[in-house]
């Protein structure tokens, strides 16, 4: 699951070097538009639906993994 999340991050931000340290503060490509793209890609990848509160809390890789875990 963690690997899949990383894959989605790399695909959305178009950056193959992204790792577990990725966050909104250190990743330039993670802007508001790409945040939505990330949400759509995660939802399609895992077949889940993320709530607006969860979407707002997804500020870094760890948070994304934590939230996705509760959904699948």
């Amino acid at each position: 699951m963690e690997q899949k999340v990383l894959m989605v991050l790399r695909r959305v931000f178009k950056d193959a070097t992204i790792d577990e340290t990725c966050s909104q503060s250190n990743c330039k490509a993670w802007d508001s538009m790409n945040h939505l793209n990330l949400v759509v890609e995660l939802e399609m990848e895992f077949g889940i639906s993320l709530e607006p509160e969860e979407i707002a809390r997804m500020v870094d890789y760890a948070a994304v993994v934590e939230i996705v875990k509760t959904k699948i």
């Binding site: 508001s32 538009m33 939505l36 793209n37 949400v39 759509v40 607006p52 979407i55």
Partner: peptide, 11 residues
């Protein structure tokens, strides 16, 4: 997505 980002057509 409409309320999050004013995107009408589904992403």
């Amino acid at each position: 997505f409409y309320f999050l980002s004013q995107m009408i057509v589904s992403p």
